[in-house]
Amino acid sequence: MSDPEHARLLVDVSRDYYLDGSSKVDIAQRYGVSRFQVARLLAEARDSGIVRIEITPPAHLDGERSRRLADALGAEQVVVVPSGSDAEGTRTSVAHALARVLAERAPAGTTIGISWSRTVEAAVHHLGTLPPCDVVQLVGALPVSGAGDSLGLTQTFRSMSGVRTWPVWSPLLVGDPSTAAGMRRQTEIAAALDRADSLDLAVVAVGAWTDTGSTVYPQVTGDERRAAAAGGAIAECSGRLFDAAGRRVVTPLDARVVGVTLDQLVRTPEVVAVGYGAQAGAGLRAAVLGGVATVLVCDEAAALEMEHLLEAPSA
Protein backbone atom coordinates (compact mmCIF):
# COMPACT_ATOMS: atom_id res chain seq x y z
CA MET A 1 0.00 0.00 0.00
CA SER A 2 1.42 3.40 -1.03
CA ASP A 3 1.82 6.20 1.46
CA PRO A 4 -1.17 8.17 0.09
CA GLU A 5 -3.31 5.07 0.24
CA HIS A 6 -2.21 4.34 3.79
CA ALA A 7 -2.86 7.92 4.82
CA ARG A 8 -6.34 7.71 3.30
CA LEU A 9 -6.98 4.49 5.23
CA LEU A 10 -5.92 6.19 8.46
CA VAL A 11 -8.32 9.05 7.75
CA ASP A 12 -11.22 6.77 6.80
CA VAL A 13 -10.79 4.44 9.77
CA SER A 14 -10.49 7.37 12.15
CA ARG A 15 -13.57 9.08 10.73
CA ASP A 16 -15.58 5.86 10.98
CA TYR A 17 -14.50 5.27 14.57
CA TYR A 18 -14.41 8.77 16.11
CA LEU A 19 -17.08 10.61 14.13
CA ASP A 20 -19.52 7.94 12.99
CA GLY A 21 -19.21 5.76 16.07
CA SER A 22 -18.56 2.50 14.22
CA SER A 23 -17.11 -0.36 16.27
CA LYS A 24 -13.65 -1.75 15.62
CA VAL A 25 -15.24 -5.04 14.54
CA ASP A 26 -17.45 -3.29 11.95
CA ILE A 27 -14.51 -1.26 10.66
CA ALA A 28 -12.37 -4.40 10.38
CA GLN A 29 -15.03 -6.11 8.28
CA ARG A 30 -15.47 -3.02 6.11
CA TYR A 31 -11.77 -2.76 5.21
CA GLY A 32 -10.84 -6.44 5.29
CA VAL A 33 -8.46 -6.21 8.25
CA SER A 34 -8.47 -7.56 11.80
CA ARG A 35 -9.79 -5.53 14.74
CA PHE A 36 -6.25 -5.55 16.17
CA GLN A 37 -5.04 -3.86 12.97
CA VAL A 38 -7.83 -1.30 13.39
CA ALA A 39 -6.55 -0.55 16.89
CA ARG A 40 -3.03 -0.09 15.53
CA LEU A 41 -4.31 2.18 12.73
CA LEU A 42 -6.18 4.35 15.23
CA ALA A 43 -3.07 4.60 17.43
CA GLU A 44 -0.99 5.56 14.40
CA ALA A 45 -3.54 8.21 13.40
CA ARG A 46 -3.24 9.78 16.87
CA ASP A 47 0.56 9.56 16.92
CA SER A 48 0.88 11.13 13.48
CA GLY A 49 -1.46 14.02 14.25
CA ILE A 50 -4.23 12.95 11.88
CA VAL A 51 -6.41 12.59 14.96
CA ARG A 52 -6.17 15.22 17.69
CA ILE A 53 -8.27 14.65 20.78
CA GLU A 54 -9.22 17.64 22.92
CA ILE A 55 -10.90 17.12 26.27
CA THR A 56 -12.63 20.22 27.59
CA PRO A 57 -14.32 19.48 30.91
CA PRO A 58 -17.08 21.78 32.17
CA ALA A 59 -15.86 24.54 34.45
CA HIS A 60 -16.90 22.74 37.64
CA LEU A 61 -14.78 19.72 36.68
CA ASP A 62 -11.80 21.71 35.45
CA GLY A 63 -9.04 20.56 37.77
CA GLU A 64 -6.58 23.09 36.40
CA ARG A 65 -9.04 25.89 37.02
CA SER A 66 -9.58 24.73 40.61
CA ARG A 67 -5.83 24.60 41.14
CA ARG A 68 -5.43 28.12 39.74
CA LEU A 69 -8.14 29.39 42.05
CA ALA A 70 -6.56 27.65 45.04
CA ASP A 71 -3.15 29.12 44.17
CA ALA A 72 -4.58 32.61 43.72
CA LEU A 73 -6.40 32.43 47.05
CA GLY A 74 -3.57 30.75 48.92
CA ALA A 75 -5.76 27.74 49.74
CA GLU A 76 -4.57 24.15 49.94
CA GLN A 77 -7.48 22.96 47.79
CA VAL A 78 -10.64 24.30 46.20
CA VAL A 79 -13.40 21.88 45.17
CA VAL A 80 -16.03 23.31 42.81
CA VAL A 81 -19.28 21.55 41.94
CA PRO A 82 -22.07 22.58 39.55
CA SER A 83 -24.73 24.98 40.77
CA GLY A 84 -28.16 23.37 40.76
CA SER A 85 -31.40 24.75 39.35
CA ASP A 86 -32.40 25.78 42.89
CA ALA A 87 -30.87 26.13 46.35
CA GLU A 88 -31.81 22.60 47.36
CA GLY A 89 -30.19 21.06 44.29
CA THR A 90 -27.04 23.10 44.81
CA ARG A 91 -26.88 22.19 48.49
CA THR A 92 -27.15 18.51 47.59
CA SER A 93 -24.26 18.72 45.10
CA VAL A 94 -22.06 20.63 47.53
CA ALA A 95 -22.92 18.23 50.36
CA HIS A 96 -21.86 15.21 48.29
CA ALA A 97 -18.52 16.90 47.54
CA LEU A 98 -18.03 17.85 51.19
CA ALA A 99 -18.67 14.24 52.25
CA ARG A 100 -15.95 13.05 49.86
CA VAL A 101 -13.47 15.63 51.14
CA LEU A 102 -14.21 14.74 54.76
CA ALA A 103 -13.78 11.00 54.07
CA GLU A 104 -10.44 11.64 52.35
CA ARG A 105 -9.09 13.81 55.16
CA ALA A 106 -10.25 11.89 58.24
CA PRO A 107 -8.06 8.83 58.88
CA ALA A 108 -8.42 6.78 62.06
CA GLY A 109 -7.33 8.59 65.20
CA THR A 110 -8.18 12.05 63.89
CA THR A 111 -9.81 14.69 66.09
CA ILE A 112 -12.45 16.39 63.97
CA GLY A 113 -14.40 19.51 64.81
CA ILE A 114 -17.83 19.79 63.21
CA SER A 115 -19.82 22.99 63.04
CA TRP A 116 -23.42 22.97 61.81
CA SER A 117 -25.23 24.10 58.69
CA ARG A 118 -27.82 22.47 56.50
CA THR A 119 -25.06 21.60 54.03
CA VAL A 120 -22.81 20.08 56.69
CA GLU A 121 -25.75 18.10 58.03
CA ALA A 122 -26.55 16.76 54.56
CA ALA A 123 -22.88 15.89 53.97
CA VAL A 124 -22.72 13.79 57.14
CA HIS A 125 -25.74 11.78 55.99
CA HIS A 126 -24.00 11.16 52.64
CA LEU A 127 -20.80 10.22 54.47
CA GLY A 128 -22.15 7.01 55.92
CA THR A 129 -19.47 6.43 58.56
CA LEU A 130 -16.01 7.39 59.77
CA PRO A 131 -13.08 5.34 61.05
CA PRO A 132 -12.52 5.41 64.83
CA CYS A 133 -11.91 9.05 65.76
CA ASP A 134 -13.01 11.88 68.06
CA VAL A 135 -15.71 14.28 66.85
CA VAL A 136 -16.00 17.61 68.65
CA GLN A 137 -19.16 19.68 68.37
CA LEU A 138 -18.00 23.20 67.63
CA VAL A 139 -21.20 25.17 68.17
CA GLY A 140 -24.32 25.01 70.25
CA ALA A 141 -27.64 24.24 68.63
CA LEU A 142 -29.40 26.70 66.35
CA PRO A 143 -32.64 25.05 65.23
CA VAL A 144 -33.68 25.99 61.70
CA SER A 145 -37.10 25.29 60.25
CA GLY A 146 -37.01 22.16 58.08
CA ALA A 147 -33.55 21.08 59.26
CA GLY A 148 -31.81 19.57 62.26
CA ASP A 149 -29.23 21.14 64.53
CA SER A 150 -25.72 20.57 65.84
CA LEU A 151 -26.84 18.37 68.73
CA GLY A 152 -28.68 16.04 66.36
CA LEU A 153 -25.65 15.97 64.10
CA THR A 154 -23.43 14.99 67.03
CA GLN A 155 -25.81 12.15 67.84
CA THR A 156 -25.39 10.90 64.28
CA PHE A 157 -21.64 10.66 64.81
CA ARG A 158 -22.17 9.02 68.19
CA SER A 159 -23.99 6.14 66.48
CA MET A 160 -20.89 5.33 64.39
CA SER A 161 -18.76 2.48 65.70
CA GLY A 162 -15.51 3.65 67.27
CA VAL A 163 -16.39 7.36 67.13
CA ARG A 164 -16.26 9.33 70.40
CA THR A 165 -18.19 12.59 70.58
CA TRP A 166 -17.71 15.76 72.58
CA PRO A 167 -21.12 17.50 72.68
CA VAL A 168 -22.06 21.11 73.41
CA TRP A 169 -25.35 20.94 75.27
CA SER A 170 -26.34 24.55 74.70
CA PRO A 171 -27.95 26.85 72.18
CA LEU A 172 -25.52 28.62 69.86
CA LEU A 173 -26.92 32.00 70.90
CA VAL A 174 -27.83 32.56 74.55
CA GLY A 175 -30.01 35.45 75.67
CA ASP A 176 -27.37 37.45 77.53
CA PRO A 177 -23.58 37.40 78.06
CA SER A 178 -23.65 36.23 81.67
CA THR A 179 -25.82 33.22 80.83
CA ALA A 180 -23.55 32.38 77.89
CA ALA A 181 -20.48 32.60 80.12
CA GLY A 182 -22.15 30.25 82.58
CA MET A 183 -22.95 27.78 79.80
CA ARG A 184 -19.35 27.84 78.60
CA ARG A 185 -18.23 26.92 82.14
CA GLN A 186 -20.44 23.81 82.29
CA THR A 187 -18.21 20.73 82.52
CA GLU A 188 -19.18 18.96 79.28
CA ILE A 189 -19.40 22.17 77.26
CA ALA A 190 -16.06 23.43 78.58
CA ALA A 191 -14.46 20.06 77.71
CA ALA A 192 -15.72 20.26 74.13
CA LEU A 193 -14.67 23.88 73.63
CA ASP A 194 -11.27 23.16 75.17
CA ARG A 195 -10.93 20.16 72.85
CA ALA A 196 -11.34 22.60 69.95
CA ASP A 197 -7.82 23.80 70.81
CA SER A 198 -6.32 20.50 69.61
CA LEU A 199 -8.22 19.63 66.44
CA ASP A 200 -6.58 17.95 63.47
CA LEU A 201 -9.41 18.93 61.13
CA ALA A 202 -12.46 21.17 61.29
CA VAL A 203 -15.49 21.36 59.02
CA VAL A 204 -17.36 24.66 59.06
CA ALA A 205 -19.83 26.63 56.98
CA VAL A 206 -19.28 30.19 55.83
CA GLY A 207 -22.29 32.35 55.13
CA ALA A 208 -22.73 35.89 53.86
CA TRP A 209 -23.69 38.27 56.66
CA THR A 210 -27.19 38.89 55.27
CA ASP A 211 -30.67 37.73 56.20
CA THR A 212 -30.59 35.11 53.43
CA GLY A 213 -26.92 34.17 53.64
CA SER A 214 -26.63 33.23 57.31
CA THR A 215 -28.88 31.27 59.67
CA VAL A 216 -27.46 33.36 62.54
CA TYR A 217 -28.26 36.79 61.05
CA PRO A 218 -32.05 36.64 61.66
CA GLN A 219 -31.43 35.79 65.34
CA VAL A 220 -29.39 38.86 66.29
CA THR A 221 -30.49 42.21 67.66
CA GLY A 222 -30.57 45.52 65.85
CA ASP A 223 -27.68 46.81 67.96
CA GLU A 224 -25.61 43.75 67.06
CA ARG A 225 -26.32 44.23 63.36
CA ARG A 226 -25.34 47.88 63.52
CA ALA A 227 -22.11 47.00 65.32
CA ALA A 228 -21.39 44.36 62.67
CA ALA A 229 -21.97 46.86 59.87
CA ALA A 230 -19.74 49.42 61.56
CA GLY A 231 -16.98 46.84 61.81
CA GLY A 232 -17.26 45.92 58.13
CA ALA A 233 -18.55 42.38 58.69
CA ILE A 234 -19.32 40.56 55.45
CA ALA A 235 -19.44 36.92 56.55
CA GLU A 236 -20.15 34.61 59.46
CA CYS A 237 -18.67 31.30 60.55
CA SER A 238 -20.04 29.46 63.59
CA GLY A 239 -21.55 32.70 64.86
CA ARG A 240 -18.26 34.62 64.52
CA LEU A 241 -18.03 37.57 62.16
CA PHE A 242 -15.18 38.71 59.92
CA ASP A 243 -14.52 41.33 57.27
CA ALA A 244 -13.42 41.10 53.61
CA ALA A 245 -9.80 40.60 54.64
CA GLY A 246 -10.68 37.80 57.04
CA ARG A 247 -10.15 39.95 60.13
CA ARG A 248 -12.32 39.20 63.15
CA VAL A 249 -15.13 41.72 63.71
CA VAL A 250 -15.87 41.96 67.43
CA THR A 251 -19.44 42.87 68.36
CA PRO A 252 -21.71 42.28 71.39
CA LEU A 253 -22.81 39.13 69.56
CA ASP A 254 -19.56 37.37 70.51
CA ALA A 255 -20.48 37.42 74.19
CA ARG A 256 -23.71 35.51 73.48
CA VAL A 257 -22.15 32.77 71.32
CA VAL A 258 -21.43 29.33 72.74
CA GLY A 259 -19.03 27.85 70.25
CA VAL A 260 -15.60 27.74 68.67
CA THR A 261 -13.69 30.98 68.15
CA LEU A 262 -12.02 32.14 64.96
CA ASP A 263 -8.66 32.01 66.75
CA GLN A 264 -9.18 28.32 67.46
CA LEU A 265 -9.97 27.68 63.79
CA VAL A 266 -6.88 29.59 62.69
CA ARG A 267 -4.77 27.31 64.90
CA THR A 268 -6.34 24.16 63.41
CA PRO A 269 -4.06 22.53 60.79
CA GLU A 270 -6.86 21.82 58.31
CA VAL A 271 -10.18 23.64 58.10
CA VAL A 272 -12.65 22.75 55.36
CA ALA A 273 -15.09 25.60 54.76
CA VAL A 274 -18.24 25.11 52.72
CA GLY A 275 -20.53 27.63 51.07
CA TYR A 276 -22.56 28.10 47.92
CA GLY A 277 -24.13 30.85 45.88
CA ALA A 278 -22.57 34.05 44.59
CA GLN A 279 -23.10 35.84 47.90
CA ALA A 280 -20.94 33.23 49.69
CA GLY A 281 -17.94 33.93 47.45
CA ALA A 282 -16.61 36.97 49.31
CA GLY A 283 -16.84 35.21 52.67
CA LEU A 284 -15.09 32.08 51.43
CA ARG A 285 -12.28 34.18 49.99
CA ALA A 286 -12.01 36.14 53.24
CA ALA A 287 -11.91 32.93 55.27
CA VAL A 288 -8.78 31.87 53.39
CA LEU A 289 -7.22 35.33 53.62
CA GLY A 290 -7.74 35.36 57.38
CA GLY A 291 -6.34 31.88 57.88
CA VAL A 292 -9.71 30.53 59.01
CA ALA A 293 -9.99 28.03 56.11
CA THR A 294 -7.41 25.96 54.23
CA VAL A 295 -9.79 24.02 51.95
CA LEU A 296 -12.94 25.31 50.23
CA VAL A 297 -15.90 23.32 48.94
CA CYS A 298 -18.28 25.47 46.92
CA ASP A 299 -20.45 25.69 43.84
CA GLU A 300 -19.79 27.30 40.47
CA ALA A 301 -21.52 30.56 41.42
CA ALA A 302 -19.34 31.04 44.50
CA ALA A 303 -16.20 30.15 42.52
CA LEU A 304 -17.05 32.69 39.81
CA GLU A 305 -17.56 35.38 42.44
CA MET A 306 -14.17 34.61 43.98
CA GLU A 307 -12.54 34.80 40.55
CA HIS A 308 -14.17 38.18 39.91
CA LEU A 309 -12.95 39.48 43.27
CA LEU A 310 -9.44 38.29 42.51
CA GLU A 311 -9.52 40.07 39.14
CA ALA A 312 -10.81 43.32 40.59
CA PRO A 313 -8.22 46.13 40.82
CA SER A 314 -8.71 46.47 44.56
CA ALA A 315 -8.38 42.71 45.22
Rank of each mutant, 00 (worst) to 15 (best):
A70G: 08
R100E: 10
D299R: 07
I55R: 13
Y276I: 02
A202I: 08
V11H: 14
R226E: 15
E307N: 07
D47S: 14
G232L: 05
A287T: 01
E44D: 13
P269I: 06
P252W: 11
V11T: 13
V204P: 00
L73V: 13
R185I: 05
V80F: 00
A228S: 08
I53Q: 02
P269G: 06
I234F: 00
P177F: 11
G175L: 06
S22P: 00
T129D: 15
D263W: 09
R15H: 14
L142Y: 08
L310F: 08
E307I: 12
L73A: 06
R195W: 05
V292W: 05
M306Y: 00
R100M: 09
G182T: 03
S23P: 06
A255Q: 11
V260W: 00
Q29A: 13
A196N: 03
G128L: 10
S2M: 13
Q29N: 14
G63F: 09
T210W: 05
R91W: 07
D223Y: 14
D86L: 04
T90M: 04
G275D: 06
V260P: 06
S14I: 10
L41N: 01
G21V: 12
G281T: 12
V249N: 01
G74K: 09
Y31D: 04
R100Y: 12
E121P: 06
E5T: 12
L199M: 10
A191E: 14
V260F: 04
L289S: 13
G290R: 06
E5K: 09
L10C: 07
L310E: 12
A28P: 02
L284V: 08
E300Y: 00
Y31W: 06
T56L: 10
S159A: 15
R15W: 11
A72K: 02
D149I: 01
G291Q: 05
P269D: 07
A233D: 01
E64A: 13
I27K: 01
L102K: 02
A95Y: 13
S117D: 00
T179H: 12
A228L: 07
G259M: 02
V79H: 11
H125R: 15
G182Y: 03
P4T: 01
D134C: 05
F242D: 05
A45L: 03
A303F: 01
L304I: 15
V135H: 02
G152F: 06
Y217G: 02
F157A: 03
Q264F: 07
A205L: 04
V25Q: 13
A72F: 02
L284W: 01
G175Q: 10
T154I: 10
S161E: 14
W166Y: 14
R40L: 09
G74W: 07
A235H: 03
S2E: 14
L193R: 00
A108E: 14
V94C: 10
T212G: 11
V260M: 01
K24F: 09
